Computed example of a mutant assay.
Amino acid sequence: MRDLWSRLRHDAYLAIVIFAGLLGLVSIFPFALYRWVAGDWVMGALDSLLTLTTLTALYIAWYRGQSRLAGQMLSLLYAAGAIIVAIYLPVTGLFWFYCVVLFNFFIAPPLRSTLITLGSLAAICLYGLWRPGTIFPDLQHLIIFACTALICSLFAYLFAWRTTLQRRSLQELANLDPLTGVGNRRTLMQEIEIALANFRRHGNQCGLLLLDIDHFKAINDTHGHAEGDRVLVDLADLVWHTSRRTDRLFRLGGEEFVLLLPGADLNGLSIVAENIVRAVGERVRTADGSVTVSIGGTLLLPDDDGSSWMHRADVCLYTAKNNGRNRSVIYKGVADDREVAK
């Protein structure tokens, strides 16, 4: 039970899909039973189909981990169901459409839910125009329904759009370093776990470079913290723009950064580290001279966990510091873990 609540608490979209799906089941399943008992075979079959498809979507979301696919399935399913219910249950069936409007904007992205909602609304209204008196008693009722549905959709869209923006902002605050805009320590730990899982399951190698700005305290003491912040931003921008699209840069804390390089080999890791050292020395500067960086790096080893992987890079970093700074030291995989080679 703890794992259940933990998963729902940490995956907002999954929680919305599960809650909306369960709400749909509670709303639809009793009607399915009632229709079968009352002998309304068409609506009973429809409600049963909606129930089974909802269960399928919940299975896809929970056990397959495809929450967005499940959400889109439910959105399209209930929109189609609203059209059919409106046709087979004139007047009273239209009330379900407002529930579908709200449901769509919770379960699907704002633009996609708008298209689905407007499409289903158009289908109902066009059918009403094609078959007068079937869904709406007269044209006036059709116009009133269309206007109220559009107004409801507009407010739902504005709410969903604003909520999406706020959720993205919260995700950025939770995952990004506010100064440099790169990943923060929390995101780094998550990416390390992903890299370890890919290495254990599929043998996908990954390199790790630990970067530390040399004499950073002296930069702050001499030029002020504003200048120190600028150096951090310049270094992050330089490393970010000179790395591959698949590489991930994180600020570990203070003047330390971590660069993860999926698919790297030992030679590639060494070349990247040397290039960063050279580029920083040439392009990142303060008022009284250039800034230098020391780097320690290592590939994943079979028995690694996150701590041992980071510790090995940290040992290499301190070796680079002790050997004069402004250089990189990469672990070569020798038997003695205390030995490193430049």
Rank of each mutant, 00 (worst) to 15 (best):
N220P: 10
C152N: 14
F105L: 10
I135H: 09
S308E: 06
A45F: 09
T286E: 01
E339M: 02
L238E: 08
A195G: 07
L179Y: 03
A226L: 15
R325F: 08
R244G: 12
V280E: 05
L261E: 10
E255M: 10
G183D: 03
L22V: 15
A38T: 15
T53R: 04
P302T: 02
A80N: 07
G181K: 05
G306A: 01
F159A: 08
A79G: 15
I276K: 04
L76N: 05
L154S: 10
L179H: 03
W41P: 02
W161S: 13
L22S: 11
R327K: 11
T319S: 01
L232N: 08
N326S: 13
F95S: 15
S294V: 05
Y88S: 08
F216I: 00
C316I: 00
Y98V: 07
E339F: 00
G71W: 04
T242W: 00
V293P: 03
D11G: 11
T92H: 11
V277M: 01
P262D: 04
G119I: 12
L188K: 04
V272E: 13
L49E: 06
L211E: 04
G65N: 06
I295V: 15
Y127K: 09
T298D: 00
R185W: 04
G181A: 08
L23D: 13
I28K: 06
S294M: 01
W161G: 04
I271Y: 06
Y127A: 14
A57G: 13
A335V: 14
V17F: 09
L115D: 06
G71P: 05
L188Y: 01
N275S: 12
A123E: 11
V182M: 00
